[in-house]
Amino acid sequence: MLTNGDSDNLRLLRSKANRFFTYIYSPITWVRTMTLIEEEASLLREKNLQLSFQLESMRHLLDENSRLKKLLNFKRESKLNIYPARVINMGASPHLSSSLTIDIGSESGVSVNDPIMTPNGIIGKTVIIGESESIVQLINDVTFRLSVRIKPSNSTGILRWLDKDLYLIKEVQKNSNVEVGNQIVTSGFSDIFPSDLPVGEVIKITDERGRFQKSVIVKINENIGSIMNLFVIVDE
Rank of each mutant, 00 (worst) to 15 (best):
residue 118 T to M: 02
residue 174 K to Y: 09
residue 229 N to V: 12
residue 173 Q to T: 10
residue 59 R to W: 07
residue 48 N to I: 04
residue 97 S to F: 11
residue 178 V to A: 05
residue 109 G to S: 04
residue 2 L to K: 15
residue 93 S to L: 03
residue 235 D to K: 14
residue 100 L to G: 00
residue 115 P to G: 09
residue 154 N to I: 06
residue 21 F to L: 13
residue 157 G to E: 00
residue 124 G to E: 07
residue 114 D to V: 06
residue 191 D to C: 05
residue 28 I to M: 03
residue 93 S to W: 00
residue 29 T to L: 04
residue 165 D to T: 07
residue 2 L to G: 08
residue 168 L to K: 11
residue 69 K to N: 06
residue 228 M to W: 03
residue 75 K to G: 06
residue 98 S to D: 05
residue 149 R to K: 15
residue 77 E to R: 04
residue 232 V to A: 07
residue 37 I to A: 09
residue 45 R to M: 02
residue 171 E to D: 14
residue 189 F to D: 10
residue 227 I to N: 02
residue 180 V to L: 08
residue 186 T to W: 01
residue 76 R to P: 01
residue 198 P to R: 07
residue 187 S to H: 02
residue 36 L to I: 02
residue 165 D to A: 00
residue 10 L to R: 13
residue 236 E to T: 11
residue 20 F to D: 06
residue 80 L to T: 01
residue 149 R to A: 12
residue 119 P to A: 10
residue 197 L to P: 11
residue 86 R to T: 05
residue 197 L to D: 15
residue 66 S to Q: 12
residue 105 G to Q: 01
residue 32 R to Q: 03
residue 111 S to Y: 10
residue 3 T to Y: 14
residue 128 I to M: 07
residue 175 N to K: 14
residue 51 L to T: 02
residue 3 T to I: 14
residue 147 S to C: 14
residue 107 E to Q: 10
residue 111 S to H: 13
residue 165 D to C: 03
residue 165 D to G: 00
residue 72 L to Y: 05
residue 235 D to S: 11
residue 144 F to R: 07
residue 227 I to M: 03
residue 53 F to N: 08
residue 97 S to P: 14
residue 83 Y to S: 05
residue 133 E to P: 00
residue 144 F to L: 01
residue 217 I to G: 02
residue 190 S to F: 11
residue 26 S to M: 04
residue 183 Q to I: 12
residue 101 T to F: 00
residue 216 V to F: 09
residue 165 D to S: 04
residue 80 L to Y: 06
residue 74 F to Y: 12
residue 207 D to H: 15
residue 19 R to N: 13
